[in-house]
C-alpha cells in the first residue's frame, strides 16, 4: 500500500524536473489550451529560474520566520516572558485575520516594489503557524518528563536544548510545513508587486488570456507544494520516532 504513493511522488518529481529543464518537450500537452497560435510554453523567462527564485523567496522567508517564531515561543514559555503569553496568543489570532494580499499591498508603500514586500508578507504570514505550533509543543510536554530532567540536575538551558525542543520537534516541523505550503501559494501573488516568482507565468496568462500559462504556473506551484508537504511529513515521522525513542 505504501509503495504506490512513493512511486507516484517520484514520478511527479521526475515530471516536474523534466518540465522545468525541457519545457518544450511538453509543448503538445499545452497546445490545445491556446488560441490564435499563442505560445503554449511560457516564453518571457526561464521557468526553472522563476521556480528557483520562488523557492528561494519561500526558503528565506521561512528560515527567518522559523528563527524568530521559535525564539519568541521559547521566550514566552520561560518564567521571564510568561506575562507575554496571553497577549502573544491574542496577537497570533489577530494576525491570522490579515489577508495575504492586504499584507502584500500594505508593505509596498513602506519598502517599494519587488521581492522585498513579498519577503515581508511571506515572513509575517509564516510566523503565525510556526509560533502557534512551537507554543503548543512546548506547553503540552508531559510534566513528568520535565520533572525527570530537573531531577537529573539539568540546568534550564540543558532542559530546553536536550529535552523540551527535541520533544516538541515534530509539532514545530508541522508548523514549518504549514507555513511553507501557505508561503508557496502566497509567493505567486507576489508577482503582482513585481517579485520574480512563478506567479509571473500565471499573471502573464491571465493578462493575455492564455490558459496554457495559467495551467503550467499553477501546476508547478501545486506539485511543489504537495512534494514539499510530503517531504516535511516524512521528516516529521523521523523526528517523532527519534524523540519518541529518547523519552
Amino acid at each position: 500500500m505504501r509503495a504506490l504513493p512513493t512511486l507516484a511522488r517520484l514520478a511527479a518529481l521526475a515530471l516536474l524536473a523534466a518540465f522545468l529543464m525541457r519545457p518544450d518537450w511538453f509543448e503538445p500537452v499545452f497546445r490545445p489550451l491556446t488560441e490564435n497560435g499563442a505560445p503554449a510554453i511560457y516564453n518571457q523567462g526561464s521557468l526553472l529560474g522563476l521556480t528557483l527564485a520562488h523557492l528561494g523567496l519561500v526558503a528565506l522567508a521561512t528560515a527567518g520566520a522559523t528563527a524568530l517564531a521559535v525564539a519568541l515561543a521559547i521566550l514566552v514559555t520561560r518564567p521571564f516572558g510568561a506575562e507575554f503569553l496571553p497577549l502573544s496568543r491574542a496577537l497570533v489570532n489577530i494576525g491570522q485575520t490579515f489577508p495575504p494580499v492586504a499584507v502584500l499591498a500594505l508593505a509596498v508603500p513602506a519598502v517599494g516594489f519587488g521581492a522585498t514586500p513579498t519577503l515581508i508578507a511571506l515572513f509575517l504570514y509564516g510566523l503565525l503557524p510556526i509560533f502557534e505550533n512551537t507554543l503548543t509543543g512546548l506547553t503540552t510536554l508531559s510534566p513528568a518528563v520535565v520533572e525527570a530532567a530537573k531531577g537529573t540536575g539539568m540546568t534550564a538551558t540543558q532542559r530546553l536544548a536536550r529535552v523540551e525542543l527535541p520533544l516538541a520537534a515534530p509539532v514545530i516541523l508541522a508548523g514549518i510545513r504549514l507555513s511553507v505550503v501557505i508561503g508557496l501559494a502566497t509567493a505567486t501573488i507576489g508577482s503582482t508587486v513585481a517579485a520574480k516568482t512563478v506567479g509571473e507565468v500565471i499573471i502573464a496568462g491571465l493578462l493575455s488570456n492564455n490558459l496554457a500559462f495559467v495551467l503550467q504556473g499553477g501546476l508547478i506551484v501545486a506539485v511543489l507544494a504537495v512534494l514539499i508537504y510530503d517531504g516535511f511529513t516524512a521528516l516529521g515521522r523521523v523526528a517523532g520516532r527519534w524523540s519518541g525513542g529518547t523519552s
Binding site: 504556473g217 499553477g218 506551484v221 501545486a222
Partner: peptide
Amino acid sequence: NMIQTIPSIALFGLLIA
C-alpha cells in the same frame, strides 16, 4: 486538501475555461 495547494490566482484563472 489537493485543491488547497493550487495557488489562488491559478485556480481563479483555470476556472475561466
